[in-house]
Design a protein around this nucleic acid. Structure first.
Length: 422
RNA sequence: GUGGCCGUAGCUCAAUGGUAGAGCUCCAGAUUGUGAUUCUGGCUGUUGCGGGUUCGAGUCCCGUCGGCCACCCCA
């Protein structure tokens, strides 16, 4: 009877919140011309080892299946995407703009904003080397967040370019193979003590001041960022992003432009992160396919917390949820001899697409109205002594009127009950 | 993986080492054809679990599991 740590039940109110997030993710992605894909929840452990190395295994929900295969619940979508792209890459025109909203699993200790199970929006563009694709990606992540009601006062995209750092190192005559190690230091710059950072930089023959000077003024290594800015500014998104060279992302496989999205108050961990990974598909497919690629991921957990912490976003979500009550019409069966008629009507209305509910067992009229109220229905239809008329009631206004039973559909139409799409 | 704080009814929380309680929720009735309020009644506990100290443990001690927070990590 106990929930596993880091896993969630989705009671109706939680499920409505989750659906709100997933529905908006999907809607904005489609607005940007992205198509949805999905893959298996279970993959071979090997797939994740190949991308992230053997250390990843301790972060996986993994086990041996009955066929002695080492398998793992997916902790992320990119390896699955890589496999799918490598399998049928030639069947799709480039650039491929794909998105997915997988439920992912990671064996980690849970804490604020991080569970062992979560949904993650993944958007990727495959086969497009131009900076226009990076701009499209960043515009998408901005608009996804804006769809939840967030403004430039609520979040910011911090953009950087790993190549600018590599150019910085080249100018200092530092070997490219050590670039990765250097980027790890930059990644931790904000979190580590200055003395510790200074010590690490010493092995590169660099000082903290030199690095800070570059961060403050990256100078001429920013052609790509300027191109990106032009694209984003043309879309009117100036206020939503800023250059921040300290963002390099922890992962080795990123190349070029990378970005992370943070809430303005910096109370929460990153809302989303991504960047270009031009070599990953080649490396994972052992050279079989070589395509430019970039993408980002956004989890539902931190996003949900920011929505909760942001009054106007919370209000927007609640409004959306209230628009989707369980029922539109509630049939009140005041006289049990009318039940079979009510059942026939329920069936007919449901076939027309109305959301209809009624008491399954005989119940007092007062109770039925209470249940009608709770179901979210706007209108009740009462079957009783008035037969062959039925009594309509608009719950919000308490207006009542009698109508002939055979004009029922027309009356509902007059009440402008629309069939809302879910 | 490391450290700090916390686990009592479905929820929020009380209870000096001395009989485990309240509010809310839920259910029923007052009200046999109309939703609110009110009133009345009712349900819910191995005090997370296991051990120890004690005449006696919800309370103190140890362990364990779970939760929150920070660190590590963060695909």
């Amino acid at each position: 009877m106990q929930l596993l740590p880091g896993f969630r039940d989705f009671f109706p109110e939680d499920c409505a919140r989750r659906n709100y997030i997933l529905a908006h993710w999907r809607e904005v992605c489609r607005r940007y011309g992205f198509v949805e894909y999905d893959g298996p929840v279970l993959e071979t452990e090997e797939l994740y080892r190949k991308k992230s190395g053997d250390e990843i295994v301790k972060q996986l929900f993994n086990f041996c299946d009955k066929g002695e295969r080492a398998v793992a619940m997916r902790p992320e979508m990119t390896p699955t995407l890589a496999r799918m792209v490598a399998t049928r890459e030639r069947d799709f025109k480039k650039p491929m703009k794909w998105f997915s909203m997988p439920q992912c699993f990671r064996y980690e200790k849970q804490q604020r904003g991080r569970l062992r199970e979560f949904y993650q929006l993944n958007c990727d563009i495959i086969g497009e080397p131009s900076v226009a694709a990076d701009a499209e990606m960043i515009a998408l992540v901005i608009d996804v967040l804006r769809s939840f009601g967030f403004t430039e006062n609520d979040f910011v995209v911090r953009v950087s370019d790993r190549d600018a750092w590599l150019a910085f190192l080249a100018a200092k005559n530092i070997d490219v193979p050590r670039g990765q190690e250097f980027l790890q230091i930059v990644d931790k710059l904000e979190r580590e003590a200055p003395e510790a950072v200074e010590a690490k930089l010493k092995s590169f023959g660099l000082t903290l001041d030199e690095v800070r000077a570059f961060i403050a003024n990256p100078g001429e290594h920013l052609e790509k960022f300027n191109e990106l800015s032009a694209e984003l500014n043309a879309r009117g998104l100036n206020a939503f992003y800023q250059l921040d060279p300290t963002i390099v992302r922890g992962l080795a496989y990123y190349t070029g432009i990378v970005f992370e999205v943070f809430d303005r108050s910096k109370k929460l961990r990153a809302l989303a992160g991504g960047g270009r990974y031009d070599n990953l598909l080649r490396d994972m497919s052992d050279g079989k396919v070589s395509l430019h690629a970039l993408g980002f991921g956004m989890g539902d957990v931190v996003l949900g917390e920011l929505i909760n912490d942001t009054p106007h976003a919370l209000e927007k979500m609640q409004h959306w949820i209230e628009q989707r009550p369980a029922a539109q019409v509630y049939l009140v069966i005041a006289k049990e001899e009318r039940r079979s008629t009510a059942l026939a009507d329920a069936q007919r209305l449901r076939e027309l697409g109305f959301r209809v509910d009624f008491s399954l067992t005989p119940s007092k009229v007062g109770k039925q109205f209470q249940a009608a109220e709770q179901s979210g229905a706007r209108v009740t239809i009462l079957y009783g002594d008035e037969w062959p008329n039925v009594k309509f009631k608009t719950l919000a206004t308490r207006d009542e009127f009698l109508a002939a039973h055979d004009s029922l559909i027309a009356k509902l139409d007059e009440l402008k009950l629309t069939i809302e799409e879910f």
